[in-house]
Structures are given as C-alpha cells and as structure tokens.
Simulated scan of single mutants.
Amino acid sequence: MALASDLDEPHDSVREPVLSIRGVSKGFGAVRALTDIDLDVYPGEVVALVGDNGAGKSTLVKILAGVHPADSGVITFNGAQVSIPSPTESRELGIATVFQDLALCDNLDVVANLFLGRERGGFMVDEELMEQQAWELLRQLSAKIPSVRIAVASLSGGQRQTVAIARSLIGEPRVVILDEPTAALGVAQTAEVLNLIERLRERGLGVILISHNMADVQAVADRVVVLRLGRNNGVFRTSDVSYEDIVAAITGATDNPVSSRSAAQSSEKDAE
C-alpha cells in the first residue's frame, strides 16, 4: 500500500491543482467537525472523499458550496486564494455541488429543471433554444434521457441524477462535487451514473465524489482521500490500494504517516 502523499506524482509536478485546501478547520460550538484538513483536486481527476458517518465529509462539502464558512485555513482556486461566503459565490467561482437530494422540481420537465432561474431569451423565454441546448449538453454526457420534455417525476433514479449533474454544468464549472450520487440506485442505474462521472473527467473537470460504496470508488476514482473524526487519515492512489486498506483507514484499524502525525499534533496541543 502506498500513500499518494509519499509518492512523486509526475502530473502533479507539471500541473497546478484547480482546487487546493490547506489547514481548513470548522467547529460548531464545542464540537470540532474539521481539524486542519488538506485536499487537492486536479483538472481531469476524480477524487473520492470517504469516511464513516461523522467524519466531516458533509461539513467540508458545505464549506466548498458556500453553506458554511471555514473557521480557519486557506482555500485556493485556479491558483488564487479565495473565500466562499455563499452558494452564489461558490457557483460563480466555478464550483458546482450536486447534493444527495438533487433539488429537482418533479412537476417540471427536463428543460425547465436545467434552466430554472437561468432561462434563455431575456423577457421572452426562448423554449426552442433551451431545448436545443439541453439536448446538446445531454449528448455530450452520453446521457440516456428519452425526452427533454418529459416530467422529471417520470424518470428513473439514474436519469434524475443525470439531470441534476447536467444542470450543474450550465455555468461551466471547473470542479463538480457529487454527494452520494449512487445511493439507493440499482446496478444498471449505478453504472449509468459512473459512466457520467467518467464523462466529466474526460471534459477536464475536477470531480469530488463522496461515497460509502467502495466498489464505486475503486471503479472511477483516481485518488482516495480518507477523513476520520474530522481529520485527514490518508490519501491513496486507487490503483495502489485495496478495498481492505481503504476500510482500515476509514475505521482507524491501521496507522499511516498522516494519522500518526495528526495524533502527535493532538498530543502536543493537549500537553500545552
């Protein structure tokens, strides 16, 4: 087993991460949700963010989505230090987040959901233009949608996930965050969503995949970032790590240089 942080990444030496997080911490009263979190996401890369319930995954996603402000730490996007005070700022910056509930309007068709709040045509909505752009975007993603004029309520779980991801791409983001995109999906629908994630990577986007499904993680992720109790507990190349190694890092069954360093720092602070 090899930690990505301990290995030389050839592409990392010639490319800058599109998103970089250093020392991000967040607390809610006496509860420390995140402590000194580091994370890099490169263009054309899928990074799986994994951890047990309460590990801090959702809090980190909400910080990047502009829902919660970080208490401390530095966030760099496209090489510049940024702050993300609101969801609007996050979207304008180039970060698109697809939460697990998808936030789709079941009674509206695919076109209306894609362009809700961003309708084309000014004072007179151009339905024909929006329909044309909807089909173009879905074709680029190799999406399997029977019609863009069908109500979202009539779509399968995988197709609904496709619509939510396609909607996130309307603003030309550089990073897409997917929160449990295959949860409660069947085998065929899961395969459809995983294919969609690969299309995002091929488009040169950085993808952060939050998932509890290790089979999905190993199928599409380039690297795996493990959070445990609000701290980094390992960064692994997917090709070099086994299912058991990832689970061991999630549960704390094994030590690695990252977790050992975090434990030592905690001991020093307690001693003070």
Rank of each mutant, 00 (worst) to 15 (best):
V111S: 14
R199T: 05
I165E: 05
D126E: 07
V98F: 05
T97S: 08
T162N: 02
R120E: 11
T254P: 02
L129W: 12
A70Y: 14
D40N: 09
R160V: 02
D245V: 11
D240T: 03
R231Q: 15
S168R: 07
Q81S: 14
L205I: 06
A183N: 08
I177W: 09
I165L: 04
L104W: 09
V163I: 06
E128S: 14
G66F: 02
I145C: 08
V47K: 05
P69K: 10
G51E: 09
N107E: 14
Y42A: 11
F236W: 14
L229W: 00
T190M: 05
D109E: 12
V125H: 04
D179M: 04
F28M: 04
M130E: 08
I21C: 01
D52M: 09
A4K: 13
L185Q: 07
G158R: 06
G158H: 06
I210S: 03
A221S: 14
V74I: 13
V247I: 13
T59S: 12
G44N: 05
R15S: 11
A166G: 03
S90T: 12
L39Q: 07
A112V: 00
G44M: 11
R231V: 10
G206C: 06
E92H: 15
S20L: 10
I37G: 04
Y243P: 06
I208H: 02
I150Y: 01
S83I: 04
E127Y: 13
P173D: 09
E131P: 03
V98M: 04
A112I: 02
E92G: 15
R203F: 10
P257Y: 13
G73H: 14
